[in-house]
Design a protein around this nucleic acid. Structure first.
Length: 309
DNA sequence: CGTATTTGACCAGCGC
DNA sequence: GCGCTGGTCAAATACG
């Protein structure tokens, strides 16, 4: 278990990144409405319906985040990064300059769902921002985008997020909205693997590294396969994946279900159910006790606490 | 000497 | 068309 795993943000072993659905900060909501207005004439009634949907999705975001926070016995709201836009208040600092808006516009192009099926999914609130889906010039090829944050030693300048995969750095850039440089990595384990990773210190807290993953690995994790708690199915179509992105909770659709988006409310109910909780605890406990590193460390810790004979 | 990292240059997208 | 910005390339450099 590495330091990053132990010392995740807020000391939580998993960094929750469940920005489900739409951004909820007021500027984003207005942007959404503006975009819709630009594409077609929208009546006030339609705008109100859309806004009601946004409010509903935001409320579902909040409830889901609360449930998961409760699941892990700590409040994850202050993390801000992993859950920004879902449970943090709408006063979340956002770049206000028009240039920042330009950047966001492009990012929204990357992550927005431009084809009908995907936009339907977003409207229904079934899309987790933890795996924003990007499209490729209308081809509807989906690229998984997810974010992970890790707490690190502030003096550590390596910008390395240990997640079990091998990465090759191919660039570094200072971005406009953050004085810390952003590092660009490609998966080095398999040359054909399309996954990219961006790592940057948080602008608010320099001890937090924010890693953004794009794409999906087309190979097994080289160092962690079969070692750590990996995933647990919430229902037939959704899996909470703990094996990816260094343990970030990631909502992953089961293959072949893209056309039939999961019902988020149903997912929430299952996550909150005692059966799910006990199954999750069992899986985690089982995986930990199978891990020789964990048992060794546990034995060492116990020995330290025992009086010397 | 081979490989990984660094870093300045270049390119593309976007708004004005 | 221009300027700004993020992302990528590739030569130079560092390292084992």
């Amino acid at each position: 278990m590495d330091a990053a795993w132990r010392g995740g943000v807020g000391c939580s072993p998993v960094c929750l990144d469940l920005r489900v659905g739409l951004e909820q900060s007021p500027p984003a909501r207005h942007e959404l409405l503006d975009r819709s207005a630009a594409t077609k004439a929208m009546t006030d009634a339609e705008a109100k319906i859309l806004e009601a949907k946004v409010t509903q999705v935001s409320e579902e975001n909040r409830r889901l985040a609360e449930m998961i926070a409760h699941l892990y016995g700590r409040d994850i709201a202050p993390l801000g990064l992993g859950l920004e836009g879902s449970i943090s208040p709408p006063t979340q600092p956002r770049p206000a300059s028009p240039l920042a808006g330009k950047k966001r516009a492009r990012e929204s192009m990357e992550t927005a769902n431009s084809c009908d099926a995907n936009s339907n999914r977003q409207k229904s609130g079934g899309t987790a921002d933890a795996e924003n889906l990007a499209t490729d010039e209308g081809s509807c090829r989906r690229i998984k985008v997810s974010g992970v944050c890790r707490r690190i030693d502030p003096s550590d300048t390596s910008l390395v997020v240990k997640d079990g995969y091998q990465w090759r750095k191919y660039g570094q850039k200072v971005t406009r909205d953050n004085p810390s440089p952003r590092a660009y990595f490609r998966c080095a384990f398999a040359p054909s693997c399309p996954v990219k990773k961006k790592v940057q210190r948080s602008a608010e807290d320099s001890s937090v590294l924010v890693a953004t993953y794009e794409g999906e690995h087309n190979h097994p994790c080289p160092s962690r396969a079969g070692e750590l708690p990996c995933s647990i199915s919430v229902n037939s179509s959704v899996t909470l994946d703990l094996s990816k992105n260094g343990g970030a909770v990631q909502v992953v659709e089961t293959e072949g279900t893209a056309a039939a988006p999961p019902d988020l409310k149903e997912v929430c109910r299952e996550v909150a159910s005692p059966g799910f909780r006990s199954a999750l605890v069992e899986q985690m406990a089982s995986a930990l006790t199978r891990d020789p590193k964990f048992t060794g460390a546990l034995a060492a810790a116990i020995l330290q606490k025992l009086p010397d004979y």
